[in-house]
Write a protein that binds this DNA or RNA. Structure first.
Lengths: 180, 180
DNA sequence: ATCATACTAGACAGACCTGTATAGTATGAA
DNA sequence: TTCATACTATACAGGTCTGTCTAGTATGAT
């Protein structure tokens, strides 16, 4: 009798370790030890480490989509953007913040891997969210600038361990939607 | 008689491979093979791989400082910023572009490593450069926003393989210095 | 009661990793 | 000529990596 499925615990541990320590320095053995699971259980649920990485990113993408789905309820565009960046600022201030899991993973995985396709899909959703906010097409310069704000905020806040970079980016993002 | 010193060739190869493929997936053996150098020569010049990584970042930092030293000659602030981002756009369009070497390395190296200290120093220089541009202190919100522009531009342009993100960021950066 | 399913435990192969050690070569200065 | 310096070449130790394999256990449905 397992409290939760081996697969769920593996994904949970992989999420913690891949995000916190990095993907390449986190060995399979540490994941299965953290999950309290046998190695065979990992390879019964995932065909390879690459697939586990892709599943980790897929789960992260699902959580992100849940966030923006909730935000799309908000009618006012500026308010929607403000709440989005407020959520980023909140997570950047939380213990264990380590930047954007997709941007981080992009440094570590091969450009042609399954994982990288999930990363690209994330940016596609991000662009579409921003394009709804500014009510234009995803290839509008304003959307690109908002992506720059997101990415820069997460990256810089992580490296310099300074959540105020997110609030600075939030103010910048507001300026993009205001002056249009 | 060596054409160039073993140390120089090692640093050169490490720069190419660490930047292009990533730090953790690039083994020592591939570096010495690329440099055409014996393993002992590596460990005569660098005490460990960590030190080679730090030296790689140090060399990258030196090149960056050369760039902004040249830009500081330019009197007009907007022109200086424009040239800075033009240079980023140029490199983002060049073959082999892979984002900011410091931001990339920050994902792969330990937060307490010698390499990470070089990364922090890079951001310090970046902040000081921007603070000279906008003629304020490095902790001014405008400086933070410019850092966000830099980081976001490099990260997003790399992941999405789209140099136009840099030009979008450049326009955004110009807006920061204009409206003050 | 039988039997598929999902799991645990752990040995193992084969590759790759960093770093050390040994032995020999070329150069250039004193 | 002697000798330090810098280098090449390569074997090796000890570890870690991913992934496979064998063997055994618990559960729950039929």
């Amino acid at each position: 009798m397992t409290r939760t499925s081996a697969r769920a615990r593996l994904l949970d541990t992989a999420t913690t370790l891949f995000y916190r320590d990095g993907i390449n320095v986190t060995g399979i053995d540490r994941v299965i030890a953290g999950a309290g699971v046998a190695k065979a259980s990992l390879y019964n649920n995932f065909s390879s480490k690459d697939e586990l990485i892709a599943a980790y990113l897929e789960a992260s993408l699902t959580r992100f989509l849940d966030l923006i789905d909730g935000l799309d309820e908000v009618a006012d565009a500026r308010e929607r953007l403000a709440r989005f960046f407020a959520e980023l600022a909140r997570s950047a201030s939380a213990a264990g913040f380590s930047g954007c899991p997709f941007a981080n993973a992009a440094v570590e995985v091969a450009p042609d891997s399954a994982a990288h396709q999930v990363i690209v899909r994330f940016y596609d959703h991000l662009a579409r969210f921003f394009s709804r906010v500014v009510a234009t097409t995803p290839d509008d310069p304003a959307v690109r600038q908002l992506i720059v704000c997101y990415d820069g905020a997460m990256s810089a806040a992580k490296i310099l361990r300074d959540p105020s970079l997110v609030t600075a980016a939030a103010a910048l993002a507001q300026r993009i939607v205001e002056v249009r």
